[in-house]
Write a protein that binds this DNA or RNA. Sequence first.
RNA 1: GGAGGGGUUCCCGAGUGGCCAAAGGGAUCAGACUGUAAAUCUGACGCGUAAGCUUCGGUGGUUCAAAUCCACCCCCCUCCA
Length: 426
Amino acid sequence: MEMAQASIIADLEARNLIAQLAGGDELKRHLAADSRTLYCGFDPTAESLHIGNLLPLLALRRFQLAGHRPVALVGGATGLIGDPSFKDTERNLASIEIIGDWVERIKPQLVRFLDFDCGANSALLVNNLEWTREYDVLGFLRDVGKHFSVNNMIQKESVRQRIERDGEGISYTEFSYMILQSYDFSELFKRYDCTIQVGGSDQWGNITGGIDLTRRLHRQQVYGMTFPLITKADGSKFGKTEKGAVWLDPAKTSPYAFYQFWLNCADADVYHFLRYFTFLSPREIEEIARDDAASQTRPAAQGILAREVTGLVHGEQGLAAAERITAALFSGEVSGLPEEDLRQLEQDGLPCTEIAPQTTLLDVLVESGLARSRRIARDLVGSGAVLVNDASQSAGDEPLNPGLALCGKYFVIRRGKKHHHLVKLV
RNA sequence: GGAGGGGUUCCCGAGUGGCCAAAGGGAUCAGACUGUAAAUCUGACGCGUAAGCUUCGGUGGUUCAAAUCCACCCCCCUCCA
């Protein structure tokens, strides 16, 4: 785990991973001088983390590889409040029980990216509920709240638009979020000598709040760093597919779907994303870009990106499964696959639906989720978008012909170019 | 507590008694072209094979007819206190 400690900033810079530094050159010297403790918070806003969380998560790992000690904080307390930063509407609060459940699900996801057993810079996992649960309201308002100026807080860009925007507002609950997160930083400083907080650039206001509070509470200078907001060249939002967010939990987004997400990355983004989301060196990435530019064929970068990130998140096995499905569905005839391959597809996580005999194609499309309604299904069939075992379909009212089932029971249904579904006769 | 403004289909947003399943834009999906890209063009986009049915914060009412009018309720915003 030894790497020149001074190199972390240079590496992050080379990857374009630094949006803002609180402390500037002083922070660089601070990091270069010794092994430091840093933290990043992850709020339970769902039962799983998603790829929006990946960048900071990988950054913690980069710091650890560079010899620093990462603290992954799960926001058992802050998750109950809801971060208003750059959100344009107030959010609904989930119940305490549900959020507690989410916390427990997210912990193992955080753990897999960090090394918790490597000596002095072993990672830590903490929950901010530990130091907020028992804090009494009056004490908190007096000891912590007194250090915050509302005048100052409403100036923060992260909430200003919300306050100024017509037709929207912000509750006191969400407005207080910044104070809780600030208190986390000061508390981690006190407990673990944590001197750096990192996060997405939307966290800047909350991070600087923590820096100010730590100075006031402990007379200590601490630092912050943010990562850039990930943007796509076409202006659409990163991390979303037609099915919604891309989750890290394989039960919510299969390794195959995850792999496909990265594989479909636009040319204009892929080299940036290689820097952001892989541990390939900037030099290697440049070589890939150069080769792609010279080759005049389909770029190799997307495949490399998909392989690297899927491997990081889902491990060797998940990656292998994703690649098996991809190979089976996108190269060659699906109808020629032997039974064991078909069964493997099912095991690997290709979406699969069991149907009764005599089910019509339209019903199959609806039951499998490939079409939202029979009307839509009819449209799809009409436009030639539906293939069953490689054969284009023109009518949907007939039951699937069992005689055409692969190995007596499987149908591979394709909708459009990229959506496949396994259907099993029972 | 007072005064005013508002809640429309995934999002923004028009619609103020019938011509409204509801303009326009975005998002999304599909087809063509391609590299499982991008750009572009075309089509779809509440449910239903259809007749038709169910929608415009909620409930009830007026009317031959309501997203549009009335009553009450819920939620949001602005200003005043």
